[in-house]
Each structure stands twice: as C-alpha cells, then as structure tokens.
Amino acid sequence: MYDLILDSSNSELLIAIAKDNNIIDRIEYEAWQRQSELMTFELDKLLKRNNIDKKDIDSILLPIGPGSYTGIRISLTIAKIFAYALNIKIYPFSSLQILKTIKKPSICLINARSGRSYIGVYDDENIILKDTILKNEEVIEYINNHPDYDVCGDLKYLNLNGKTNDKVLNMLTLKQYIKPLDSFHIKPVYLKD
C-alpha cells in the first residue's frame, strides 16, 4: 500500500508517492497561481506512470497551512475527496514544520506578506515555538537571538539565504507523530483569522 503526498500550500506544486517510507516517484515544480489547473492532471500522470491504482493508496500526507489562502485549499480539497472516496485517513502537517532540517533546531519561515512572516520553530517532532504570525523585524530579532538554529524556507523576501530541505522526507519521518484524521475532521490553518 502507498502513501500519497500532496502540497500546494505555497508557490510549489508537489505530488509524491511513497511505500514503506521510501519515495517511489515525485513531481515538484513552481506553479504559483496555477496549482488548481495542474494538480489533478499531474496526480493522474504520476499514478499512471507508476502503475498504481487509486485503491492502493492507504493514506494521504499533506501540509494544511499556514501559507497561501487559495493554495492550502487546493491540495486539501483534493485530499479530502480522495480520502472520502477511498475511505482512508489524512495525516495533516504544519506547512512550517515540514521545512525543518532533520536533527537540528530549525526556525521555519513562510512569507505572510504585508511585512509579516509565518514562523514555527521545531526540533524534529518537538515544538519550540508554535506556528504563529510575526512582524518581519521580530523574525529577524528571533533569528539573531538563536544563531545556532537553522533558518529554513524560501527567504528571498527577507534577503536571507534560507535552507531548503526535502518536505516529502520530513513528512515521512514525522508521520509517526501525527494523528491521522478522516476527511470530515481536517480544517485548513490560516493563522490570520
């Protein structure tokens, strides 16, 4: 049985298939504002080229925010419909935690626009700072106060070089700590409400 991994919570489109924690195949590229038209098409392509039947998927892993307001709901909607139709569970992740470096405390950041960032600080499965939204000045101060932490994410908006880690690998490693839910019990996390 297979794990299906989806992510459109930010500017990227990501679909991967894993079995026993090994990544079998993946499609991953920048698709800002285009994920809704591409995701189901790419998903179909990925399943077909690996000769995987939908019925052989037994769990879905995906980040549920924070991130792009529309982007979060694209992959989540697809995941919910799959989970409902196939009667399988969804493993919901923080979009921030899956950016972290394995075995190192990591400050994970996503651009929240208007001079703010989504921030979460993680040491593997342990939460050091719960996902929240901060002004960019506060984020810079936090980074400066924690020089031994990795800073992860696409940080061009802060003029910083963020570390890029493999989100799929992170999700597979963290899966054991996440409580799976059925499609009716998963809510997107926007952090702006």
Binding site: S68, Y69, T70, A112, R113, S114, Y190, K192, D193
Partner: peptide, 12 residues
Amino acid sequence: KDIGLEEFIDGD
C-alpha cells in the same frame, strides 16, 4: 476581508 488578497497586493 480575510480572503487572501495580500498575495496579490504584495505580490509579483
């Protein structure tokens, strides 16, 4: 108003 407009206002 919280409908994601900042992605376009502070966008590309």
